[in-house]
Amino acid sequence: MRAIAVSALRAEPVLVEVPKPEPGPGEVRVRIDYASLNPLDWQVTDGSAGELAPPPRAFPFVVGVDYAGRVDMIGGGENRFRVGDPVFGRADVADACGSYGEYLCVRQDSAIALVPRGLDARTAAALPSAGMAAAQVLEAVALRGHETLLVVGAAGGVGCCLTQLARARDVRVIAAVRGDERSRMGSLGAAASVDLTDGPPADALRKACPDGIDALADLA
């Protein structure tokens, strides 16, 4: 199969031919339709991911973690998926086979799920890493409905997901962004947006939330 891979640590990713992976017991093979880009992709390949992920152990190393596609083959044993299921998820970066290839094998009990009805595969592929990080942040701040969350860097992938998840829990989101990024934050559920480049940020924040905030998520 074709894949984007590196041949060594810090090597340039290139298009290569590698064997099509075969699913083991408890695994599924996914035919990849879409793969999204994440900072972790290049951090893993140059060994700078730190505690987030170990450097590659085997080469060629296929890059990428987030994906969407359809189950192509089922490994042995019990499995919660069926051939043809539309799925999306996040690959284990410790494996030598990532999402920048035509096929990917993952454990059926890993971060993989059916694509919800009404969600297209292209959008689904962009959600796993950013969405999981946003969910972890929201769990950590532990806000109740009608409390206020200030999100710095809200216009990024994690920030956009966090804004929507928080709004769904009736949390009031103040989005701190830069310049014209303000225009789309309201449509994502932000109660107010603050332009960090338009004068002293403290003054803008006092105006947007005169009663203060209950939690801060700094994603910048």
Score class of each variant (00 low, 15 high):
R82D: 09
A191C: 15
G179C: 13
F59Q: 10
Q136T: 05
A130C: 09
A133L: 04
G145F: 02
P128Q: 02
A111T: 05
P21K: 02
G156F: 02
D218H: 12
Y103N: 00
A191K: 08
A91C: 11
L9H: 04
R172N: 13
Y34P: 01
R10W: 10
L149S: 11
L205F: 07
V65W: 05
A142H: 10
P13D: 04
V194N: 01
G156K: 02
L119V: 14
L104R: 00
S36F: 02
A58M: 11
S7Q: 11
F59N: 09
A155C: 11
V173R: 00
G145D: 01
V171K: 00
D211S: 15
Y34D: 03
E147C: 09
V63G: 07
L165H: 02
R31A: 14
L216D: 08
L119P: 13
L216I: 15
Y103S: 01
G179S: 11
A94Q: 14
Q43D: 08
G179M: 15
G24H: 13
L114V: 09
A91F: 05
Y103H: 06
R206K: 14
T45D: 06
T123H: 10
D195M: 12
V6L: 04
G159A: 09
S36N: 05
T197H: 15
S183P: 00
A125K: 05
P56L: 11
C97Y: 10
A142T: 08
A154I: 00
A134F: 01
I112M: 01
V87R: 03
V158A: 09
R206P: 03
A35W: 03
A68M: 07
P210H: 14
P23I: 12
S129F: 05
W42R: 09
S110L: 01
S129D: 08
V152G: 12
P39H: 13
Q164C: 01
V18A: 07
A176K: 03
A130V: 14
P200M: 08
F88D: 09
D214V: 15
V63M: 13
D198E: 15
R31K: 15
S48F: 02
V106L: 03
R144F: 05
D72A: 14
G153D: 07
S110C: 09
I213K: 04
V14F: 07
L138P: 00
A134N: 01
D92T: 09
G47V: 13
A94C: 11
R178A: 14
G84A: 13
A113S: 10
V18Y: 03
R117P: 05
C160P: 04
V141A: 08
R82H: 05
I74L: 15
R184C: 10
L149W: 03
A133V: 04
Y34L: 06
V28R: 02
V83S: 04
R90E: 05
G157L: 06
V87T: 10
A140P: 04
D92P: 05
D180F: 14
A91L: 13
I74N: 06
S187W: 00
A134M: 02
D92G: 08
G159Q: 01
A208F: 10
V141R: 04
V173M: 02
D180P: 13
V194M: 03
G212P: 03
A11T: 03
M73T: 15
T148G: 07
L165K: 02
G47W: 06
G157C: 07
L162N: 00
D92I: 12
V87S: 03
A191H: 08
V62P: 01
V151W: 06
